[in-house]
Design a protein around this nucleic acid. Structure first.
Length: 592
RNA sequence: GGUUUCGUAGCUCAAUUGGAUAGAGCACCUGACUACGGAUCAGGAGGUUUGGGGUUCGAAUCCCUACGAGACCA
């Protein structure tokens, strides 16, 4: 039983005994720093039932706990707040439990499985900053869910077909001169992206030309030769035209090669990849099924709709009058496919909040269709990433390229490390690895520390900051502890749990308390689908350790029991930081 | 036009889901044993939580309203 559970039990008993009131839901909160104590019980809401003043209730329960609870040592009451302090033996036992846990912060299997879909790139251009937030969130969430007991399958749905791909193909065919990633020295995804931009340039020129000839902007946009040709390519592709499919395969192959390099660099991987080219025709049989049982209805022009007004949504098109699919049709089909492939209990989609409405509709339709798995479907909606200059717009070239950003960060990490001169050899394998760890640590932490639901600002200057509330700050704390552990090993000092009479230093209690919060936070992060919970925790823990480190001396304390205890404490903190950062997909260095 | 999300220190973010005098980091100022790693620590300054009203023991959080920003549906 956790300390918190014991306290709640004891408080419940005290309430029943003193006021003859049955309180079923005891809520404890951490005591604010300016007050003494670690756990606070708020008594205001009991006031009516117990017919006493809040402060009086606090006094009575506090006195009862001090007398009867096995863990409470003393208490104080401020207004309706009962602040509880724990005895040193309790702290000692608590630490002993934490220290002996097999993997602290990891929960046993809950027998449930979850599929997390994320990343889901288009193959017509390279990944950018927005994708990074998506990838880091999806990757971290997968790790968190796994740690909290789920069986996790990471998936990626690649948008590898459609008009946008045909645009790149067309521009390449016309302007490429047989260029390849090898001949140009460009990463494959960047090469494809280059021709996508070329298409846009030429297309705009054609529109301008047509407008000059007297067409309206709108008509010109539809009649521009390259637009017509791109559409023709799409039809050719759909009909399996060999030449078109060959070109498509060739260019997509380059793109996948480029993506793989990026994924490797940022440490992201998938268990299963779906390709839209294989799934875009799915979903039509579901439309048929829905028509049969009256979930969908046909309009005069033969288009198929669903009326979701009851759900507070609108009428939604699910099949066009010409019988072609819309996005939602494909998603219905793909979800059905996922479920028949894996039979998971839950399905998550990490997709930007611009698609909130889309997913509401998707889930509502699945429910109408009687799909039982619909209950386990969640849209992990995250906010857009803005730049100091405003929104990222590919048309205006304000998009921050992922590869470029990462290599700049690595450069900064190298420079910073060399300036500080803390490691011996700046060229060694370990050093190069360190630069990667610091760069990605900074970048991932920067993007993961904010509540996913909120839109956030990417400030390039702050993102390469290695001080304060950053990934490298936490990594530094880890490296410093590792240095202590090495020193202890050299001195043949093993960490150990102190005796029951050991008097704790305040900094030690703080540290044990911080450690004890970890499993709760992992559970909360999993429940709320929010890696930021772990990010903030890792920072708090590192800060608490640094305070401890500044306040007590580890090796030169005259009491050998204290020395050994502090070594043990340090070790557990380093392991917990390691574990927490791992849940964020961030590596830890031995030295930095 | 309809639907929806958001607005917290100069800047970037928190606030345990309705609890105490709203907390961190950056930037700014002051300090830290002849130091177990100073990428650290201690302290200072910085707020009418966009404005206004309401609900109650208690509101950044819930309701209404105005203003401002974003997204979606055509």
């Amino acid at each position: 039983m956790t300390i918190e559970a014991i306290l709640k039990e004891d408080i419940k008993k005290a309430i029943l005994k003193n006021f003859e009131v049955v309180a079923d839901d005891i809520i404890l909160q951490p005591t604010k720093k300016e007050f003494e104590g670690f756990y606070t019980f708020v008594t205001f809401s009991l006031s009516k039932a117990a017919r006493r003043a809040p402060a009086e209730i606090g006094q009575i329960i506090g006195a009862d706990l001090q007398e009867n609870s096995s863990v409470v040592s003393h208490f104080n009451v401020v207004q309706g707040f009962l602040n509880l302090s724990l005895s040193d033996v309790t702290w000692r036992n608590l630490f002993s439990d934490i220290e002996s846990a097999p993997v602290f912060g990891t929960f046993p299997s809950n027998g449930q499985s979850v599929m997390v879909e994320f990343s889901s790139p288009n193959t017509n251009k390279p990944l950018h900053l927005g994708h990074l937030r998506n990838n880091f969130l999806g990757d971290s969430l997968s790790r968190i869910l796994k740690a909290s007991g789920y069986d996790v399958i990471k998936t990626c749905l690649v948008n590898d077909r459609g008009i946008h791909i045909c645009k790149s193909m067309l521009a390449y065919r016309e302007l490429g001169n047989g260029e390849t990633p090898e001949s140009s020295g460009l990463k494959g995804d960047h090469l494809a992206g280059k021709y996508y931009v070329q298409f846009d340039k030429e297309y705009k020129a054609q529109i301008k030309q047509l407008v000059a000839e007297g067409l309206t902007e709108e008509v010109a946009g539809k009649k521009a030769p390259w637009m017509l040709e791109a559409q023709r390519l799409l039809v050719l592709w759909e009909n399996g035209d060999k030449e078109t499919v060959d070109l498509w395969n060739k260019m997509n192959g380059w793109v996948y090669d480029g993506f793989r390099q990026t994924y490797d660099k940022i440490g992201v991987s998938f268990d299963k990849t779906y390709y839209e080219s294989n799934t875009y025709l799915l979903g039509k049989d579901i439309i048929e099924e829905g028509l049969q049982n009256g979930v969908f209805f046909k309009k005069e022009d033969n288009s198929v709709w669903i009326d979701l007004k009851e759900e507070g949504l609108d009428e939604k098109l699910v099949l066009r009058s010409d019988g072609t699919s819309v996005y939602i049709t494909q998603d219905l089909g793909t979800t059905e496919l996922k479920n028949s492939d894996f039979h998971n209990n839950r399905y998550l989609w990490v997709v930007g909040n611009e698609q909130d409405y889309h997913f509401k509709v998707l889930f509502a339709i699945l429910k109408r269709l009687g799909r039982t798995y619909a209950e386990g479907c969640y849209h992990i909606s995250y906010g857009m990433v803005d730049l100091p200059s405003g929104k990222m717009k590919s048309r205006e070239g304000t998009v921050v390229d992922a590869d470029e950003l990462v290599s700049q960060m690595i450069q900064t990490a190298a420079t910073r490390t060399q300036e500080l001169g803390k490691i011996d050899d700046f060229q060694s394998e370990e050093a190069v690895r360190l630069y990667d760890q610091l760069a990605l640590g900074a970048l991932k932490y920067f993007l993961l520390k904010v509540d996913p639901k909120k839109r956030m600002l990417f400030n390039p200057e702050e993102s390469i900051d290695f001080q304060g509330h950053t990934g490298p700050f936490i990594q530094y704390t880890y490296a410093r502890i590792r240095s202590i552990i090495r020193k202890a090993e050299q001195a043949e000092l093993a960490g150990s749990i102190p005796s029951e009479t050991y008097e704790m230093h305040a900094a030690e209690r703080e540290l044990i308390f911080a450690l004890s919060q970890y499993p709760n936070r992992v559970a909360a992060a999993a429940n709320e689908f929010a890696p930021s919970v772990i990010s903030l925790y890792a920072f708090e823990l590192a800060k608490t350790y640094n305070q401890f480190y500044a306040e007590v001396s580890i090796f030169s304390d005259p009491n050998p029991e204290a020395v050994k205890f502090r070594i043990a404490l340090s070790k557990v903190v380093s392991e917990t930081i390691h574990h927490a950062l791992e849940l964020l997909g961030i590596e830890v260095p031995e030295r930095m």
